[in-house]
Nucleic acid binder design. Structure first.
Length: 279
RNA sequence: AUAUAGGACACC
């Protein structure tokens, strides 16, 4: 089972879900033992392609053939439903989103009915879905209900919420969340910091963002490509190309390779600057 | 061997 499972996981990861599914069905026909991991791997492949309904069919399929879905199976589906709108952009956003969250929550109820307890992954899928829908307040309520249920939050929960509030320009709430995570002994990581930095930059609080960037380093965290690019983007948007360039140089000095996004920010910044001179 | 969070632009 393990060897087959590994093969299915690899296929699914490589994006060849159709083949992974064929292989899985083939194994089932030959009465080979299959476990939830094999099915989960295929489900996530379909979810990543935006074909959540196919993933749902797989859930039914596994039940039919006597494999009990686990908490991961459900979490994968919930996450898939929450993200569907990001992949299929055709339908009206709000309608689609409400449907998505409802359907995802239905799954949560179903899981609980079957004695499968939602875990941090499950909750965070919903929290993230709500945040991306700009409903961070609601996300926070779900988060609080999760705490009431006795789950201990982790850095991912907090980072998700901080990013959500930051994207809604509610930096006060984002700051409070950072404080509360520290009070709970959860250490912000580079993703938490980058979320905060991006939020501050988009609210024209570059100075605070820069202080956080320095704080992150003081805390012993190593900024990566994304952290640097977020900060560089902030300087560029503001037309502060001197600081942007300085940070870009520092990034290279530290052996972090910029990518196309980093360069896009810099080029964009310089273009805007020359237009300002022209004007 | 399988699930959740961060960067420009575009989409919304």
């Amino acid at each position: 089972v393990m060897t087959y499972g590994m093969y299915i996981c690899r296929l699914s990861r490589a994006g060849d879900v159709e083949f992974a599914l064929k292989f899985l069905l083939y194994l089932r026909h030959r009465n080979q033992p299959l476990n939830s991991t094999c099915y989960n791997a295929v489900m996530i492949g379909f979810c990543r392609k935006g074909e959540v309904y196919k993933a749902m069919e797989i859930l039914e399929e596994m039940k039919t053939y006597g494999v009990t879905p686990d908490v991961r199976s459900y979490s994968i589906l919930i996450d898939g439903f929450c993200k569907k709108g990001d992949i299929l952009k055709s339908r009206s956003l709000l309608e689609e989103m409400e449907g998505r969250i409802e359907e995802a929550s239905e799954f949560m109820v179903k899981m609980e009915g079957q004695g499968i307890i939602p875990n941090l992954f499950t909750y965070n899928a919903i929290i993230n879905g709500l945040c991306k829908e700009r409903k961070s307040e609601m996300a926070k309520e779900i988060f609080l209900s999760m705490l009431k249920g006795g789950l201990v939050p982790d850095v991912v929960n907090y980072s998700t919420l901080i990013d959500g509030f930051g994207k809604q320009s509610n930096l006060e709430e984002a700051r409070k969340l950072k404080e509360s995570m520290l009070n709970n002994g959860i250490i912000p990581n580079k993703i938490t910091y980058t979320s905060l930095i991006t939020g501050l930059c988009n609210s024209r609080q570059i100075h605070k963002a820069w202080n956080l960037f320095k704080e992150m380093i003081d805390q012993g965290l190593i900024p990566d490509k994304i952290s640097y690019t977020a900060m560089i983007a902030g300087f560029c948007k503001r037309g502060d190309m001197e600081k942007a360039w300085k940070l870009y140089s520092k990034m290279e000095e530290n052996g972090i390779s910029p990518d196309v996004v980093t360069y896009t920010c810099l080029i964009d910044g310089y273009c805007k600057l020359s237009q300002m001179y022209r004007a």
